[in-house]
Simulated scan of single mutants.
Amino acid sequence: MPRGEISGRLLTVGMEVRKSEGDAAISHIISTVGQIKEYLARQKEQLDPFNAMLPHRLLPLVKERRERRSGAQSLLDKF
Rank of each mutant, 00 (worst) to 15 (best):
I36D: 04
T12N: 03
S31F: 11
R18G: 04
G71T: 07
M15S: 07
K19N: 07
S27I: 08
T32H: 14
L61V: 01
P49L: 13
R42Y: 00
Q43I: 08
P55A: 03
R42N: 09
R9A: 10
F50I: 06
R68L: 15
S27M: 14
S27V: 07
E38W: 06
Y39N: 03
S31P: 03
D77N: 12
A41I: 05
P49H: 13
L47H: 01
E5C: 10
E21V: 09
E45P: 01
S70C: 03
R69E: 15
P55F: 00
I26Q: 11
E67D: 06
G8W: 04
E16C: 01
V62I: 12
D48N: 06
A72E: 08
E5G: 06
L10M: 07
K44W: 00
R9I: 02
Q73S: 04
G4F: 06
L59V: 01
L76A: 10
F79T: 05
R66T: 02
G14F: 07
A25F: 14
K37A: 00
L54C: 06
T32R: 11
E64K: 14
V13C: 03
E38K: 15
M15V: 07
G4W: 00
D77Q: 15
D77A: 14
L58Y: 05
R66G: 00
F50A: 09
E21F: 12
E21I: 02
